[in-house]
């Protein structure tokens, strides 16, 4: 499918999603509570068949925290980016997609470890790299007076 066809499909599956044509990918932004439904539909739908999650990133946008999913179809080789943003910085929660793509479970662990976003429905969310009291270093407001020198 080309980007235009993908765009039509996304609009059909989730009318509220914002779709924008980025420099490389078609970028779809949805609300956190609508993400899982759309993600599952995009994988299960025979036309899109986005079955390969090749990158999953947590981002601190300043006011908001976000998660970015890079998806590919191994049968058609088209790609799409799903994005979502959460305004609640104190307790950001989003549904896990680990039951759709297994690899997401471990990327979610990593995002939880470094950004403190929790994933509901994750069978065993844990910190991967850091100690329990290490804070969330990839947040922009993270302070470490010992190791980070600010000029």
């Amino acid at each position: 499918m080309n980007n235009q066809q993908l765009e039509n499909l996304v609009k059909r599956l989730s009318p509220e999603a914002e779709v924008a044509e980025g420099k490389q990918f078609l970028e779809v932004t949805v609300k956190p509570d609508a993400l899982k439904t759309l993600a599952l539909a995009l994988k299960e739908n025979g036309e899109s068949s986005l079955d390969f999650l090749f990158c999953m990133t947590g981002v601190d946008y300043g006011e908001e925290l976000g998660v970015v999913y890079h998806l590919r179809s191994t049968s058609y080789q088209h790609e799409l980016v799903l994005k979502t943003r959460m305004a609640n910085r104190d307790n950001p929660v989003i549904d896990t997609v680990g039951d759709i793509w297994k690899t997401a479970l471990y990327h979610e662990d990593e995002i939880f470890d470094l950004l403190g976003i929790r994933f509901s429905g994750h069978p065993g969310l844990r910190r991967l790299f850091l100690e329990d009291d290490a804070g969330f270093p990839l947040r922009k407001d993270y302070v470490d007076e010992v190791n980070i020198v600010t000029k």
Partner: peptide, 9 residues
């Protein structure tokens, strides 16, 4: 199928 689901490359 596992290779796809686990994101193996």
């Amino acid at each position: 199928e596992d290779a796809i689901s686990y994101g193996i490359t």
